[in-house]
Simulated assay, not measured.
Amino acid sequence: MNELGERIRKLREQCGLSKAELARRVGVSDVTISYWENGTIKRVGHSRLEPLARALRCSIAHLLGKARETSDGSHAIVLSLPLYPLTASPETIGISAMPISHLSMGFIDNELIRKDDYLLIPQKLEHFDFCPQGTLMLARKCARFDGNGLYLVEKNARLMIKRVEQDFDMTLNIFGDAESHDPEENAQSNDLVFHAAIPVIWPMQVMTF
């Protein structure tokens, strides 16, 4: 029974990845992905395990079928999300951006995490509304407004965290926090570039990884 291959296939489908996309993230050919999944290649090389687990958002232990069992006999899947440094530069989250780490999300309900979510941490000497130094943000990719809330947005080639709300006339307004002195606060904004919604912000001191 090809348990590893079946596990790779299921995790890939859960992440919404094609074989070609998974291959690109791992650094192999899509033929290799097919061989892993159908059992033609029964083992994944050590150098490929970490990028494969990262792309499939699981621990290496779970990928290899060695995840710990919960009290009901099911396997506990600990997701791993990429962590990016947040600066005012849009290059922070650009295509060529590289994460500074990957964090196992043992401190959060896995059901909260969706495909392509990632983590952001404000860098020193940078100020962002609603998320001071020592906080960690869950970022959910989006290209447009999707309900009132916090968003990572770009305006005038600068990344910002703002609360965006929609009026009854469908006009979007942006707001900073109480300590913000940005002259554009509370102004109508039709020229924002949306990068991500921010559904959760955690203080670092309450986390265990």
Rank of each mutant, 00 (worst) to 15 (best):
E154V: 08
Y151M: 01
A143P: 05
L152S: 07
N186S: 06
A157R: 13
R163L: 06
R163W: 15
N156G: 10
P183Q: 11
I174P: 04
C142N: 00
R144I: 05
D182W: 15
E179L: 09
D146N: 14
L172D: 03
A187I: 03
V153M: 08
G149P: 15
N148G: 10
Y151P: 14
N173T: 15
H181K: 05
L152N: 09
T171Q: 06
N173R: 15
M160Y: 11
A178R: 08
E165T: 11
I174C: 07
R163P: 14
P183F: 00
R158K: 13
A157N: 12
F168R: 10
F145D: 05
D167A: 00
T171S: 03
F175E: 02
F168C: 01
E184A: 02
C142A: 02
I161W: 03
E154F: 09
K155I: 04
K155T: 07
Y151T: 03
I161D: 04
E184F: 02
L150S: 14
F168E: 10
E154I: 06
D177E: 07
M170R: 13
P183S: 13
R140A: 09
R140S: 10
A178Y: 15
N148H: 07
A178V: 02
A139T: 06
V164C: 01
A139G: 10
V164Y: 03
D177T: 09
N173G: 11
R158H: 13
M170V: 09
Y151Q: 05
K162W: 15
M137F: 12
G149E: 12
S180C: 09
E184C: 08
G176P: 14
V164I: 15
L172T: 05
C142I: 00
G147C: 15
R163N: 14
R140Q: 07
H181T: 07
M137A: 15
K141D: 02
K162R: 14
I161L: 05
F175R: 01
K141R: 02
E154Q: 14
N156V: 06
E185Y: 04
L150E: 13
Q166W: 06
A178K: 11
N156D: 13
F175S: 00
I161K: 00
L172C: 07
E184G: 06
M137P: 14
F145V: 05
Q166A: 01
N156C: 05
E185G: 04
K155C: 04
D146E: 15
D177A: 09
Q166R: 13
I161F: 00
A187N: 11
